[in-house]
Computed example of a mutant assay.
Amino acid sequence: DLRVQRQIGRIDGKIIEMPLKTKNAYRTLPLSADAIDVLVQQRRKTGNSEWVFPSPTGGPMSPDSVLHMLHRVLKRAGLPKVRFHDLRHTFATLALQNGVDIKTVSGMLGHFSAGFTLDTYAHVTTSAKREAAKTMGNILSGAV
């Protein structure tokens, strides 16, 4: 599991560790076996740093550096530039489209309520409802 319990930010040009924005942002997320393997391999490369992805000086990476690295990886893969928030949105959309319930997605995103998540991703749940109606129609018409 991955515990989300702090964030890195910049204040007066200095990279610092900060508390999260809301109490709901503090959460524990399960990780897939593949994700754990990648993190374990990365951890081996960092020696005894407290950071899984340390900066060249050994401290935390700046948010700007992390975004720059993401853009380099995307460019090499022939993919368009996106923000980390876009990746978060994609995760939520794919989870909902593939049957993960709204309460679970809400908790994983650290939202205050499932209602907020539902409002934010209404476009996804609307299409899921259409699919559910089609599926139920097929089931019921076959049962008659």
Rank of each mutant, 00 (worst) to 15 (best):
T46H: 02
A77E: 05
P80C: 14
P19Y: 05
D1Q: 14
E50Q: 11
L87S: 05
L96I: 11
A132C: 04
I11D: 10
L109M: 11
S127K: 14
F112C: 01
T46C: 09
A133K: 05
D1H: 15
T57M: 03
Y121K: 05
V52T: 09
S127F: 03
V52I: 15
D34T: 01
V124P: 02
R130V: 05
L109R: 10
P54Q: 00
K129F: 08
M108E: 13
G137K: 05
S141Q: 10
W51P: 05
A128N: 04
I16A: 01
S65P: 01
G78F: 11
S141A: 08
I16S: 00
R88S: 07
K21W: 12
A25M: 04
F53W: 11
L74K: 06
M18E: 08
D86C: 03
N138F: 00
R44Y: 03
P30Y: 14
R76E: 05
V40I: 14
P54K: 00
T28C: 02
M108G: 12
L67A: 13
I139S: 03
Q97V: 06
S113Q: 09
E131A: 11
T46D: 02
P19W: 08
L109H: 09
E50S: 07
K129T: 10
M69Q: 03
L29R: 07
V124F: 00
L79V: 02
N138G: 06
D37L: 05
L94Q: 12
E17Q: 12
T104Q: 07
T28I: 07
L74T: 07
R88D: 04
A114W: 07
S141P: 00
M69F: 03
T117P: 13
P60G: 12
T22W: 12
R6P: 04
A132D: 10
T93S: 15
A143P: 00
V124C: 01
G78N: 08
L109E: 09
H71K: 10
P60M: 09
P63E: 08
R6D: 04
